[in-house]
Simulated scan of single mutants.
Amino acid sequence: MTVHLHRGDLPDGLDLGAVVAVDSETMGLRYRRDPLCVVQLSAGDGDAHLVQLDRDAYDCPNLKRLLTDPQVLKIFHFGRFDIAMFQLWLGVETRPVYCTKIASKLARTYTDRHGLKDVVRELAGVDLSKAQQSSDWGAETLSQAQQDYAAADVLYLHAVRERLDAMLAREGRTGLAAQLFDFLPVRARLDLDGWEDTDIFAHT
């Protein structure tokens, strides 16, 4: 594994291919209180690219271009949060997307364990450490442990997606999953607009 740390933006000319795994690190889990700090990406080749964002400007045209590129599929785990953070702090709507958490809930109905650690352990055979999950992502310098943690969150999503796609096809839920992925940026917008704890489809 090689971790490439970039300050402010992805470098010019970097091509991560047609399918890119994406995750983010923030100062917390509240949208407007907790700023976006780091975005990590992987082409599924064993390398990870971490963008430590400039929180004074969020001027990252290369990253924004990739997130909105209609020819690049972005794989997330619980993309609802990351996509909302990108809408809020970067001002972009991320499409097209694939969420391994949604796919897991549709395909792995034999379990209620759909966190990244559980999904990666079962489908990729890797035991992720979550020790740095709550560390200070707004620090001026990211520790090697933080960099390795952030990288691990995207390194295995391609393999997980491949396994989940096979399971979705087996269960006849591929089309349903695709419709849910397409709706995900809208769900993220609802979260930002105040409906994060409301089921707008419920009768009451």
Rank of each mutant, 00 (worst) to 15 (best):
G8C: 05
A159Q: 15
L50F: 04
R95V: 11
A18G: 08
F86R: 00
L53Y: 06
D15L: 06
R30N: 05
T204N: 14
L88V: 06
W137T: 09
Y110K: 06
S143Y: 13
E140T: 14
Q87K: 11
I102D: 01
Q144S: 10
P61K: 02
T26G: 01
A84D: 00
G8Q: 01
Q133F: 09
G46C: 09
C99D: 15
R161S: 07
P185L: 03
D112L: 09
Q146I: 07
L176M: 13
Q144V: 14
T68F: 02
V160Y: 11
V51D: 13
P61Y: 02
D12S: 15
A103Q: 00
D191S: 04
G46A: 12
E122F: 06
A57I: 00
A124K: 14
Y110E: 14
L164M: 12
Q132K: 12
L168K: 00
D191P: 08
G17I: 14
D45E: 11
V154N: 05
D12M: 13
D9R: 05
A43N: 02
A21T: 11
S129W: 04
P11H: 05
D191W: 02
Y156F: 15
P11K: 04
L116D: 02
K130I: 12
D23F: 07
R187V: 02
H158C: 11
R187P: 00
L164E: 15
I83E: 01
L50S: 03
V22H: 04
D54G: 08
L5P: 06
R170Q: 15
L184M: 15
L157S: 03
Q179G: 06
A139L: 00
I200P: 15
P96R: 01
G79Q: 06
Q147T: 08
K105L: 04
L184I: 01
R55V: 14
A107C: 12
T2V: 07
K101F: 04
R55W: 10
T198L: 15
M85Q: 13
M85S: 05
E171M: 07
N62L: 00
Y58W: 05
V126F: 09
D23C: 07
R33S: 15
L184V: 03
L116A: 01
Q71E: 14
A145F: 01
A152M: 10
H158V: 13
F78N: 14
S42W: 06
G175P: 00
A124M: 10
Y110D: 10
Q133D: 09
H114W: 14
V97P: 00
E25G: 09
A21K: 13
F201V: 12
D193I: 12
R189Q: 13
T109L: 03
G28E: 10
L88T: 03
V154Y: 04
A151C: 11
Q52C: 07
G91I: 07
K130M: 14
A43Y: 01
G125N: 11
D34C: 08
D165Y: 03
T141F: 03
M85P: 02
V72F: 05
A151L: 10
A145S: 08
Y156S: 08
V119S: 01
L29D: 00
R55G: 07
W195T: 02
K105Q: 14
